[in-house]
Simulated scan of single mutants.
Amino acid sequence: MRQIILDTETTGLDPNQGHRIIEFAGLEMVNRKLTGRYLHLYMHPERDIDPDAERVHGISLDFLADKPKFRDVAAELCDFIADAELIIHNAPFDVGFMNAEFNRLGLPLVEKQCAQVTDTLAMARDAFPGKRNSLDALCDRFEIDRSNRTFHGALIDCELLSEVYLWMTRGQDSLMMDIGYGEGGEGGGAQGFKFERKPLTVLAPSADELAAHQEYLDSLDKSVKGSCLWRSIENPPSEQPA
């Protein structure tokens, strides 16, 4: 199945209040490989952009002055997402806006056009309960470089989300994971969480560190007028000479 890593930027937070999509980005993935095919669109919203939203994504109405309206690019967008699985971080937000746009034009809703929608935010909350699970937090958790992410632009967010998604689903069919462009790679769905952990680095103490440790234990022995608890941990009764 084709997968589309998808993100949008909008004029505000609520499509029910008339807010509109101003940027759409989607990256195509097949067999856990980005194919190099993508769709990136800017759209004039035919309304103002909330200042708070503009501070997040950095897109101004002046920048969008010569951009097409959503109705002008709707067919291209629908063709791109048709029959694919959509991978979206906080999917209800983006799907809600897309459905509002489609509804204005009398087009089928996302759920009718696509095979399924996978919400990586819900996946992360299941995998890391009680932790921060924003895209930034997940990038930090998986050590994904986000140094080029000045604003929350849709295309750069898709690139980051593609790496986050592969990390979160690695090991479903194989412990191997390839990130890149082209054909090949291991297949995998969007359920389950099996992570391949990096091997731990074990550092042996130096002779000086061992000596300092013994001196500290000697001082503990003196303070308790006997053998400190750490001695019994290092030398449990079964290991002590008879």
Rank of each mutant, 00 (worst) to 15 (best):
G26K: 04
Y42K: 07
M29F: 01
N16T: 14
E186D: 10
N103W: 06
A207H: 04
D83T: 06
Y38C: 11
M168L: 14
A212T: 10
F24D: 05
F63V: 01
E196H: 10
E183A: 11
E23R: 03
L6F: 15
K67F: 04
I233N: 01
H89D: 12
G188Q: 06
E209H: 05
I233G: 01
S162Y: 11
C158W: 03
L64Q: 09
T201G: 00
D48C: 03
I21Y: 04
K194V: 09
A25T: 01
F151M: 11
A154E: 04
K131T: 14
Y216N: 08
M98W: 06
G12Q: 05
Q172M: 14
D66M: 06
S227F: 03
M176G: 08
G153R: 07
K225R: 14
R32D: 09
L203T: 15
L229D: 15
G18S: 04
L229P: 00
D221E: 09
S162F: 05
S206Q: 07
I81N: 02
Q214R: 05
V117G: 08
L34M: 11
M168P: 06
L175W: 06
A207D: 14
E9L: 10
M168R: 00
D52P: 00
I4T: 02
D173G: 13
E23T: 07
G180D: 02
R141T: 12
A137Y: 10
P45D: 02
L105T: 11
N16K: 15
K67T: 14
N99L: 06
M176H: 04
R55F: 10
D126Q: 15
L175S: 05
L220P: 00
R149L: 13
L166T: 07
L220D: 02
H89I: 12
